[in-house]
Design a protein around this nucleic acid. Structure first.
Length: 413
RNA sequence: GUGGGCGUAGCUCAAUCUGGUUAGAGCACAAGAUUGUGGAUCUUGGGGUUGCGGGUUCAAUUCCCGUCGCCCACCCCA
């Protein structure tokens, strides 16, 4: 698990702000749920046979001998909250987004931490027509955040009504070839046949390739409609019939987004339709769809695609240089700093330093371009001195003009 | 859960193979040259349980065993 230090946290604030603006502009409301949930919630939602549940959860017994787990994902928690609070009795459908840490006890590697962060969205109680909406929304958001080389992979796990029949025929087919399957797949055959399609082991490939899966899983009408709509909107995609995903609650349309610049773990986002989850958790039948984005991976991809991306964050900074610790000067600085910060400008300063050469040295080290110098002479004249370290020039600005001056020179609106 | 690599100063590393004075360097940090005008330079300074535990030895950062942690990959996921 990582400590996020200054220098990194600015990037996180940037991407979180992008998400809030975009998600709320589309009618999604933020939901925050506890990090700790009863283990049972995840066993019943994500599924006993999933890797997440059987080998990746941080679980423990609390002081009341209750089995607790640090959430490995958010969808189950959102469903739990909606059912518990009866939110669907007040609205026909719901749209939520969330931002926060998730926990999976995996072996770490590039693009995978044991505490990682997701921003995600859920559309609750809307049927197939919402599939296009959620996918195009996700795609547009990633574009808005500046991601390039986005690849969208889609699959259709079939109509819910056919589920039992499909699973039966799959089980029959793979049971017939059981001796040619790896031991993981033999286990999957017992627990969750679908996951065999996800297997990468060489010996299993012929069996999987020869499976008459087009018969089991014909692309549904609603999937074809979705594909047409995506084409009309100019959103490119690949149909990948072997994309099944590792959370058992998915049915219907599932999707994943990959991007360049990530190494082995190149999935930036994933999601799909889950129509059974609410029933499984003791609620009413509630058709849903949703996705989540891995924030670490999104930030990594953005920065590797454009290494200069976060340089702009440095430009929108002002170094504050008070020259005395007189109360009037400190109060003036604090008030100006708050006004500038509210306008999106970051403030740097070294508390307790009052020597101008020290301030300038520090400002220079921090890579800040503008220094605002406030001393007794300036306060007397109701001005501040704004020094541009890059152009090596300085001007006096009237105190009431400070904010508008910085907006102008930083090209903010 | 499986396989491989790595743990020495805040960071990047050297010394380890072939055991032997006080474990070094660069960067960073602090003070000064320089009381209201920056990046350079110079001087000085603070910093280490060599991940942890045990073993071999006159002697262990170095060799052996164990353990913990991290990284990369597989599985899988974001």
């Amino acid at each position: 698990m990582d400590d996020l230090l200054p220098g990194e946290t600015e990037k996180w604030q940037w991407v979180e702000e992008k998400a809030r603006v975009f998600f709320e502009a589309s009618g999604f409301k933020e939901i925050r749920t506890p990090i700790l949930e009863p283990t049972e919630l995840f066993v019943r939602s994500i599924g006993q046979s999933s890797d997440i549940v059987h080998k990746e959860m941080f679980s423990f017994e609390d002081r009341g001998q209750r089995a607790m787990t640090m959430r490995p994902e958010m969808t189950a928690s959102v469903a739990r909250a909606v059912i518990e609070k009866g939110l669907l009795s007040q609205a026909k459908s719901l749209r939520f987004y969330y931002i926060g840490p998730m926990f999976r006890a995996e072996r770490p590697q590039a693009g995978r931490k044991r505490q990682f962060h997701q921003v995600g969205a859920e559309i609750v109680n809307e049927a197939a027509h919402a599939d296009f909406e959620i996918i195009s929304f996700l795609y547009r958001f990633l574009q808005y955040a500046g991601l390039k080389q986005i690849q969208l992979n889609l699959n259709d796990l079939g109509e819910e009504a056919d589920r039992v029949r499909v699973l039966q025929s799959l089980t029959e087919y793979f049971s017939g070839a059981k001796q040619h399957l790896c031991k993981d797949c033999q286990w999957r055959l017992e627990k969750n046949v679908l996951r065999i399609f996800d297997c990468k082991v060489a010996e299993c490939q012929p069996v999987i390739e020869n499976a008459p899966w087009e018969d089991f899983f014909p692309l549904s009408e609603r999937f074809k409609q979705l594909a047409n709509k995506l084409e009309d909107s100019g959103i490119p995609f690949h149909v990948s019939r072997r994309l099944v995903r590792g959370l058992d609650y998915y049915n219907g349309v599932v999707f994943e987004i990959t991007a360049g610049g990530l190494g082995a773990q190149n999935a930036v986002a994933g999601g799909g339709r889950y129509d059974r989850l609410y029933q499984d958790l003791g609620g009413k039948s509630t058709p849903c769809t949703g996705f989540s984005i891995g924030l670490e991976r999104l930030l990594t991809a953005l920065e590797s695609q454009d290494p200069a991306l976060f340089e702009v964050l440095k430009k929108k900074k002002v170094y504050l240089a008070p020259l005395q610790d007189a109360p009037s000067i400190l109060r003036f600085c604090r008030e100006e700093a708050v006004r500038l910060r509210e306008a999106g400008i970051r403030i740097e300063t070294v508390p307790g330093a009052f020597s101008l050469s020290q301030h300038l040295k520090k400002a220079n080290q921090l890579g800040v371009r503008f220094v605002m110098i406030v001393g007794p002479d300036e306060l007397q004249k109701k001005v501040v001195v704004v020094k541009d370290l890059e152009m090596k020039e300085q001007t006096e600005i009237a105190t009431e003009q400070v904010l508008s001056h910085f907006k102008k020179v930083m090209h903010l609106c």
